[in-house]
């Protein structure tokens, strides 16, 4: 039997979401200019942070640093007190594309992280089923990815991200390629998934409406070098529903974020 240390996917007690701390973080690639400069940010457990900003402001780089895929040149990143990488709490990354294994059926795609982490086979089937039910794809477990629509493929990707019960969810424009209707649906689903589990989220997006709908904090970044220009607190109560989008307070906040984004983009010209 395969064993796994420090791992507890379907815990009896809900695992706690983690906190994230960035202190004077800077990043450049090779001898180039700073891609990110002096990033200071604290996310408390359970925060849903949306990151929005012009192209090239280093949003994705920031996310990749949190995932431990690239490391910063200076400054400190702490996830629950430890640096990103092997010892950081369980985290999942959702890419812009569904990024599924085309040769594996839906269920096997969701099972992948569990296999790679050595979760015993006996427990895997149950977790896979639960995750697929959560994204309303329980019926499509035996389909191949290409038989699914773009929205369904993205839901498989999210189910896979949830399989290890992450404490930190990093989403890099996951719904950017989808039409607005599908995107709205998935936004609502993502929030309802959040009700059921407890994770901290960083969500990169180009859509102001999406950022305001999902997050309790929106970070507006500026480019050259990338840094945090503004932060807007979204004090709309959860759970949020499609009706939330119609509320004046939602529209005011969206207008505020749009306005700040515009000033950032104009300053870059």
């Amino acid at each position: 039997m395969e064993t796994c240390k420090n791992f507890c996917p379907v815990s009896d007690t809900n695992p706690q979401a983690c906190s994230v701390r960035l202190q004077s973080v800077a990043k450049k690639f090779g001898d180039g200019p700073d891609v990110l400069q002096d990033i200071n940010f604290d996310a408390v457990a359970g925060d849903f942070v949306a990151i929005i900003g012009p192209s090239g402001c280093g949003k994705s780089t920031l996310l990749r640093m949190l995932a431990g895929l690239v490391s910063q040149n200076s400054g400190q990143i702490e996830i629950d007190g430890s640096a990103p990488g092997r010892n950081s709490p369980e985290l999942s990354y959702v890419f812009q594309e569904p990024t599924l294994l085309a040769w594996q059926r839906v269920a096997a795609n969701v099972e992948l992280p569990l296999i790679l982490r050595g979760v015993p086979a006996a427990r895997r089937a149950e977790i896979v089923q639960r995750c697929l039910r959560q994204v309303r794809l329980g019926e499509r477990a035996d389909a191949f990815p290409r038989q699914l629509s773009g929205g369904q493929q993205m839901r498989v990707s999210i189910a896979r991200a949830l399989a290890l019960d992450p404490r930190l969810l990093l989403l890099d424009e996951p719904f950017g390629a989808l039409d607005e209707m599908t995107r709205n649906h998935l936004n609502e689903e993502l929030l309802s998934l959040r009700e059921a589990a407890s994770w901290t989220a960083f969500f990169v997006t180009h859509s102001v409406a999406e950022a305001v709908f999902l997050a309790n904090r929106v970070i507006i970044m500026s480019a050259n070098p990338g840094c945090i220009a503004h932060e807007v607190a979204i004090d709309l109560p959860y759970p949020r529903t499609p009706a939330t989008r119609e509320e004046p307070s939602f529209q005011q906040l969206a207008a505020k974020v749009s306005g700040l984004l515009r000033t950032v983009e104009e300053a870059a010209k």
Binding site: A67, G68, L69, R86, L91, S92, Y93, F95, E97, T99, L101, W103, L112, P113, I115, L116, R117, L164
Partner: peptide, 24 residues
């Protein structure tokens, strides 16, 4: 992205070859 995904799930080189590179 898939290679990075495997990396994030701390897949071994062998797992990366057998489960990702070869079928791809």
């Amino acid at each position: 992205s898939l290679v990075e995904l495997f990396k994030m799930y701390r897949a071994s080189k062998w797992q990366e070859i057998v489960r990702l590179r070869v079928p791809a």
